[in-house]
Simulated scan of single mutants.
Amino acid sequence: MTTTADAGIATPSTPSTPSRPGETNQHYDLDPRIFGLFLDPLRKYSSGMYRTPGITLAEAQEAKLHWVAERLGLTPGGGQRLLDAGCGWGSLILFMAREYQTAVTGISPAGRQHEYIASRAAELGVTDRVTTAVGRFEDLDLPARSFDAVTMLGSIVHMPDVDVAVRRARAMLRRGGRYYVSETCFRNAAARDEFDKRTGTEFVRNSIFGWGDMRPLSELVRAVEDAGFSVDDVEDLTEDYRLTIDDWLVNVSAAADAIDALRPGMAAQLTRYLEVANAGWGFTTKHYALICRNAR
């Protein structure tokens, strides 16, 4: 696995400050073992894809990653390069490196995630195709026009200036490259105005994530169009995410004692967070994936 220096990717000149809007937050810097107790084996912390009856959480997450690869036009052995802004525990980049032989770069401000990804890349034998960089996507010195695909699965919510983030994504792409962004959105502007400061929303934003800003889908579409992208498709993943969180809740309940042994009270906090998230689907929130193309 190459380091940021080996890859020619510079970290920000100013150290990360967790209280800064849009930085990573306390949630992703928790003990990695906590996430291993309720996520799937890939530790994918975003929506799966439940299009087959009776599918398990692990199967739904692999189905989702294959679907993302298809939407991005990745092919096994195709020699593509992918940049994942907000790479989490590396589920997407490690999967694409292993299954599609894609050269991948993952970005996250959470140091613990990079340590985990490095160890998993070594176990999977894909260190030669995996690079990670510690920092904020908006701040890092990245090679322009050098990627075939850019992904943001549930990470743009932590980026305070959506326009800057999307323009940066386009600047990373070669002509014809594809951009995939998926995010939980308020159902419309009126729902955002009504529910943005409600108790449940504030609990998730401040007690779990430290900072985050859900936007209506219309704001994301405007941002990608203003950045110069062509929108190829919009997929509604709301029901898929509801089923994903249902499975996470089952796992949290089953592993509550083990989770609390690592961090007392964490099982109850996770349960409240996930229940708040699932309570809003269709009423206050939706979950969408946008597939865009850098046509120029």
Results as ranks from 00 to 15, higher is better:
T2W: 13
T2R: 14
S13M: 05
T14R: 08
P15G: 05
S16E: 10
S16C: 03
R20E: 12
R20F: 04
P21M: 02
E23Q: 11
E23H: 12
T24M: 06
H27A: 05
D29E: 13
D31N: 15
L39T: 12
P41R: 00
P53Q: 01
P53F: 00
I55P: 02
T56A: 11
E59M: 06
E62S: 14
E62V: 14
A63M: 08
K64D: 07
L72R: 11
L72M: 13
T75K: 12
Q80G: 08
D84P: 13
C87S: 15
S91A: 15
Q101R: 14
A103I: 04
V104W: 05
S108H: 09
S108R: 09
P109H: 06
R112Q: 10
Q113C: 11
H114Q: 13
Y116M: 05
A121M: 08
L124N: 06
L124W: 01
G125W: 13
V126K: 06
T127K: 10
R129W: 04
T132Y: 13
T132Q: 10
G135S: 12
G135Y: 12
P143W: 02
S146M: 11
V150D: 11
T151H: 08
T151D: 11
G154T: 06
V157T: 14
V157R: 02
V162Y: 06
D163N: 13
V166T: 11
R167W: 05
R167G: 06
R167M: 02
A169S: 15
R174G: 03
R178N: 05
Y179A: 04
Y180Q: 05
T184L: 11
A191Q: 14
D193Y: 04
D196K: 12
R198P: 00
T201V: 08
T201I: 04
V204S: 12
N206K: 13
S207I: 05
F209M: 10
G210P: 07
G210M: 01
G212C: 05
D213S: 01
M214W: 14
R215T: 08
R215P: 03
P216F: 10
S218A: 15
L220Q: 02
L220P: 00
E225P: 02
E225T: 10
D226V: 01
V231Y: 07
E239C: 03
Y241P: 01
L243M: 12
L243G: 02
T244W: 12
D247L: 09
W248M: 06
L249S: 05
N251L: 01
A256N: 02
I259Q: 04
I259D: 03
P264C: 04
M266D: 02
A267M: 07
A268G: 09
T271H: 12
Y273E: 00
L274G: 01
T284C: 04
T285I: 07
H287G: 02
Y288D: 02
I291H: 10
N294I: 02
R296L: 09
